[in-house]
């Protein structure tokens, strides 16, 4: 095993082209797996000295670019995120516990793509996209096309997540992230990320993604699109939760049974939507 610490994105991409090379970000997952003898990369490429990956910046139009090495604690406290984009900071604040949030990064979490992780549903609901860079150059992948299957992403071998890009959220949208876990700081049994905008009684923006209920976060853009322009009462919410539930593919694990997840997640979506509408109606 070899350890390298490049200080630029170019040098990092070059170092990643070797067989068995792996990025080392926070180490919160990778080193745990090395300690358990589950993986042994031939070359560890530490990202700690690549300054460009540690930045987050808000552009004039409200787009926020979050560098892959931003740690969960930084994202939880990110002042550049506004309105519906706050779904991401709410998710970051609910990951694990303070020491793990001081280590783990958004790039590492998304590259690992644990189906119960908190960022994937939040990024789907925020309509975020990934900026990836490899030997062939840069490409952009929408979050919905990035998380593919159990622990499987659109990353190609030798490719690096450079940043996560959040488009500006429409003004006066709210973002929220609700997580059900056995104890605070555990991985989710189920989670709901949403971005909602209302104009009086009419729904003008709707994005709901459910985590930990299948290999990748579940979102039903088709039904969301149908609901835009109308009210968001019991009937409409029911249409969305039924459609989401159809797309669930949960597993039984130590945290909960698949059956429990199927029952609880639609109720979490309903509650999150009711609460978000309340928040909007109380905001002057």
């Amino acid at each position: 095993m070899e350890f390298v610490r490049p200080d630029s994105i170019e040098a990092t991409v070059a170092a990643l082209q070797a067989d068995g090379a792996a990025c080392l970000a926070g180490g919160a997952t990778l080193v745990a797996m090395m300690n358990a003898d589950l993986v042994a990369p031939h070359r560890l490429v530490s990202l700690r000295d690549v300054a460009a990956l540690r930045e987050a910046a808000r552009q004039p139009d409200g787009t926020v670019v979050v560098g892959a090495m931003r740690r969960h604690r930084e994202t939880a406290e990110e002042t550049d995120l506004r309105d519906g984009q706050l779904v991401l900071s709410e998710a970051a604040a609910q990951i694990a516990n303070p020491p793990v949030r001081n280590m783990g990064t958004i790039g590492g979490s998304c590259a690992f793509a644990d189906p119960a992780a908190d960022y994937p549903p939040a990024l789907l609901a925020a309509d975020a996209r990934f900026s990836l860079i490899g030997a062939e150059g840069r490409r952009t992948v929408p979050a919905g096309d990035f998380f593919l299957d159990w622990y499987e992403t659109a990353l190609e071998p030798g490719e690096l997540i450079e940043s996560v890009v959040l488009p500006p959220a429409p003004a006066r949208t709210v973002g929220s992230y609700t997580k059900l876990a056995r104890v605070a700081g555990d991985f989710a049994i189920a989670s709901v990320a949403l971005v909602l905008g209302m104009d009086g009684r009419a729904c003008i923006h709707l994005a709901v993604a459910v985590g930990a209920c299948g290999p990748a976060p579940v979102r039903r853009r088709d039904v969301e699109a149908d609901l835009i322009g109308g009210g968001l009462g019991d009937t409409e919410i029911r249409r969305l939760t039924d459609a989401l539930a159809e797309a669930f593919d949960p597993v039984d694990d130590v945290r909960a049974s698949a059956d429990y997840r199927r029952r609880v997640a639609p109720r979490m979506v309903r509650q999150a939507l009711v609460e978000a509408q309340q928040r909007i109606s109380e905001t002057p």
Partner: peptide, 13 residues
């Protein structure tokens, strides 16, 4: 200055 896990930190890093 920040609490972290020493079991998940590689010494060379």
């Amino acid at each position: 200055g920040e609490p972290v896990r020493s079991c998940l930190s590689l010494a060379l890093n």
